[in-house]
């Protein structure tokens, strides 16, 4: 474990806590894409089911349990508890256009053609694009609550921090995971636009608003 990865994971943890805090305090899931959240549940379940048969560490185990359970809890909050505050008419990105190609990619690119490995690859590819419905929604509405932008910033920071982590591991441990690295680079690139507005507006105390 290096500091990049530790802070990356902590940032990921923070992003989920920020999202939960936003939903609980505003008693609303306005501005949050249900599709993105549902894709994250798919990602976590597909990747972390190994927690039942592969022991890595207590840290790894607890994080996996937290990510699976919190993402399912968020779906519950959106679909049941605060259902009236969720407006599906602006959450229009076609998630099936993401899932389909990721299945195909996972069947082609994997480290071993076994069910758990293909599932693992699928989760890596899907995670890299799971944020698209959320970013698309932001683009469509052209604005976001500040707390929602903090959520996205923490999530983007988590991805960005994994890149120096891989570089570090390549040199210190001699290991490289090309599938995770390529998917991770794509995923981080998707945040570039968002981060530009976040740094130039939100962190200067202005509202997150996209030019018309």
């Amino acid at each position: 474990m290096n500091l990049f990865r530790l802070f990356g994971d902590l940032s990921h943890l923070a992003s989920i806590l920020i999202l939960l805090h936003k939903i609980q305090t505003t008693r609303s899931c306005r501005g949050i894409s249900f599709k993105t959240q549902a894709l994250y549940v798919t990602v976590f379940v597909a990747r972390y089911l190994d927690l039942f048969y592969d022991w890595v560490s207590l840290y790894n185990f607890s994080m996996k349990v937290f990510f699976i359970s919190s993402s399912i809890y968020i779906l519950y909050l959106m679909k049941v508890r605060f259902r009236p505050t969720h407006d599906p008419s602006i959450d229009t990105f076609r998630a099936e256009y993401l899932v389909g190609p990721c299945v195909v990619l996972a069947l082609i690119f994997n480290y071993k053609f076994t069910f758990p490995e293909v599932l693992w690859s699928f989760s890596i590819f899907l995670e890299s694009v799971a944020i698209l419905p959320q970013l698309f929604m932001l683009q469509r509405t052209g604005e976001a609550e500040t707390i929602t932008t903090h959520y996205l910033a923490a999530l983007g920071a988590y991805r960005a921090l994994y890149i120096p982590n891989w570089i570090y591991r390549y040199f210190s441990e001699g290991v490289v995971d090309p599938i995770a690295v390529i998917a991770g680079l794509v995923q981080t690139a998707l945040y570039v636009d968002f981060f530009y507005v976040y740094f130039t507006k939100v962190l200067q105390g202005q509202k997150f608003e996209l030019p018309a």
């Binding site: 190994d50 890595v56 790894n60 996996k64 490995e117 591991r169 290991v175 995971d177 995770a180």
Partner: peptide
């Protein structure tokens, strides 16, 4: 260099 999945990552 070892290529493969880093299963200790989240």
């Amino acid at each position: 260099r070892v290529r493969g999945p880093l299963k200790d990552e989240l």
